[in-house]
Structures are given as C-alpha cells and as structure tokens.
Design a protein around this nucleic acid. Structure first.
Length: 380
DNA sequence: ATTGCTGAAGGG
C-alpha cells in the first residue's frame, strides 16, 4: 500500500527500452499492475509470433521448407546445434510426446501457427494469467541481457520459496536442470501444501470444448507434470548446481546486472552484486528451506468459456518410465537418431497441426500416406 | 560470428 510509488517507476522505465522483451518479476505485495504483454483474448495476431513487422506465416509459405534443407549440416550436427539451442523447454518435450516432428518444425519455423490454434492458446494464456494474479502482482522490468533475464528468474525463486513455506501456495515457479544430457527449463503452474501437509503440484489445463481430453492428450499432460516433479526434486536435493547451470546456458556470472534488476534485488533484501551471487543464493535457498520433494501431481481440466471443471486427474509418478521416455527424446536432440512422426493410428493429430502441408513424415510415410484421412482426400 | 542465440506455456 505504502509502496505504490515504486510500481510507477518500474513501469515508466519499461517504456524506455523496447529493444528486448520485458520480463516479469513476481511481486508479492498489494499493487495494481500495468500489464501490457499480449495476454488478452481479443488482441489480434498470434501471441507466439516473433517480434517484427513481417513475421506472419505467409512469408514463409512460398519457400519450400523442410527439415533437411541443410543436408551438409544434417550429417554433422545434432538438432540442438542445428537449431542453435542451448536448452529446451519442458513443453518442447511434452509436445515431442505428442508428435516429434511437430516440435522439430516449431524449432525450425518459430511462430508458425494457424489462427484458430493461436486463438485457443491466447484464451488459455489469459485464464492462466488471471489465476496467477490472484496470488501475486507482476512488475515489468526492462532488461538488455540474458543474465538479467535469468536474474529475474532467480529473484522470483528467492521471493516465492518463503511464501510457499509460510502461506502454503505459489504460482509460476521456475524450474531448470540437466536431464539425460540436455538442459531443461520450465515453469510449474502451482505448488501448494494440502490439508495433509503434502506438497502438491497443480497444473491447470483449459479446454476449448467442454469434454475431457483424449488418451493421447492426457498422456502428454502426465508426462509434462512428471517432468516438472523430476526437475523440482533435483533442485531441492541440490543436484542442480550453479556450475551445471553456467555450463549449459553459457551465462556470465560476473557480467554486471542491469540497474532495474539490481534495484529490485536490493528492494527484495538480497544483497547481491552479480549473477553469480544470485545463483549461490538460489542454490542455498532451494536446499536449506526444508522444501520437500513433490508428493502428488494433479491436473485440472476446465472449460475455457464456462470455467466448468471437466475433470481432475491425479498422476502417479513413475521415475523409470519417465527417464526411459526422456532418454529416447534426448537421443533425437543429441543427433543419435532421426525424428519420427506419429503412428498411423494417431494420424488424426495431423488435422490440428500447423505443419501438415510441409511435413516430410506425411509425404514419405508410405503406408501412412495411403491410409491417411481417406474421406478428406482432395484431388489436386 | 556466415555478424546473434531464447520469457515458457498456451491446446489438440
């Protein structure tokens, strides 16, 4: 209440830089937020498209694109190298669980989404944002380096752990760590303690239609939350070290932090000078705050329009199964095997995919092409 | 540097 002035300062500063995307700091005080990122349903344009005036999908359509357009590179480099990736998102792996080729195309053609799809995603994103704002406010900071971006992530961890331990519930908790040779980054929807005192992860899934998801969708969602638990547990067990983080992300722990980030760190009571300091603090906070591993995994499916609860699933965690899957997925990213599309019986997934027209799997999949959607065949 | 390398999730 008494601190309302700070918020204006932060927002005003955000308009000074528009170069790099802003990042959000979770603010656990009672303030209004001047939110400007495109989370609103009615906003035109796909939310996931890259900045820039000519980033629409049309410009890419006339070019014949495929995953092998760099034959020379294909033989010598892994997808991680070819797509210039230092790490993957947890959702990359859950999309891979849906269809491996789809995530490969997403990496090659970022922001290539059908309008219907991006509209459903935008609605889901705004529902998530509304829920998040029930628990804390957001402050937009302008930043210029990836070190600043990670510093914000660390500040959010440092400020939310005590809230979880005292108030019992937090949302949008960042997780990261090396899994089967590749670094993964993600955000847990919600963590809370149950009446029994168990730590529960709660994932919200919003749905366009008022029905429960198909088996394939549930499987993907189970995998996603299991992966969150696996990474979170590793973090609180001290298995995710600053050294591993620096090694994978190539962050410079000694690079000076930007002024807005530094100021917020100080306001949060963290006397840090560098990103390295912040990493050490995060490591200590994760391992010394008496955080348990996650006990239960819960997924709630709700209808977007009416907010009706369609179902609640409790996911049983199977570490062996998870690791086997991740190992198989990482083999693709590290270039140890070729990507695969969906099986014939899951070809229905292609109907909602943005890349059907250019997908090599569909073109080359012998049996697959012959049996695909026989009733929807168009004479060309 | 072949000129630079990432908010994650968002739903099917």
């Amino acid at each position: 209440m008494a601190e309302a002035g700070e918020e204006d300062t932060v927002s005003a500063e955000a308009s000074g830089f528009s170069d790099l995307s802003d990042s959000e700091l979770l603010e656990c005080v009672d303030l209004e937020d001047a939110e400007e990122s495109g989370a609103s349903v009615s906003k035109p344009g796909p939310s996931a498209s890259k900045p820039g005036p000519s980033s629409g999908p049309l410009g890419k359509n006339d070019k014949h694109v495929n995953l092998q357009n760099c034959k020379r590179e294909l033989d010598v480099s892994s997808p991680m190298e070819r797509f210039h990736l230092k790490y993957l998102y947890v959702t990359d792996l859950s999309t891979q669980n849906w269809c491996e080729l789809q995530v490969a195309y997403e990496k090659e053609l970022p922001g290539f989404l059908t309008p219907e799809k991006s509209s459903v995603l935008d609605t889901g994103a705004s529902i998530h944002l509304a829920r998040e704002l029930e628990l804390h406010d957001l402050v937009t900071l302008s930043i210029t380096t990836k070190e600043d971006a990670w510093a914000i992530k660390f500040l959010n961890i440092l400020s939310t752990i005590p809230v979880l331990q005292s108030e019992g519930r937090i949302r949008e908790f960042p997780v990261f760590g090396e899994v089967e040779g590749v670094f993964l980054v993600g955000v847990i929807d919600e963590l809370h303690y149950t009446a029994k005192g168990e730590l529960e992860l709660a994932e919200l899934k919003t749905r366009r239609r008022p029905n429960l998801p198909l088996k394939a969708q549930k499987k993907k969602d189970y995998f996603q939350v299991s992966l969150y638990k696996y990474i979170f547990d590793a973090m609180v067990q001290g298995k995710v070290t600053p050294a591993s983080l620096i090694h994978h992300t190539k962050l410079c722990p000694d690079k000076p932090l930007g002024p807005s980030v530094l100021r917020h760190a100080q306001q949060g009571g963290f006397s840090v000078k560098s990103l390295g300091d912040l990493m050490e603090l995060v490591f200590l906070s994760l391992t010394l705050s008496d955080l348990p591993v996650i006990d239960t995994l819960k997924i709630e499916y709700i209808h977007q329009e009416t907010a009706t609860v369609l179902g609640v699933e409790i996911v049983s965690f199977d570490e062996k199964e998870l690791r086997d899957k991740v190992q198989h997925y990482m083999a693709y990213w590290m270039g140890h095997r070729e990507p695969q599309g969906v099986d014939v019986e899951e070809a229905w997934k292609c109907r909602t995919c943005s890349f059907t027209d250019l997908c090599e799997w569909r073109k080359c999949g012998g049996v697959l092409t012959a049996t695909l959607e026989p009733q929807a065949k168009k004479p060309k």
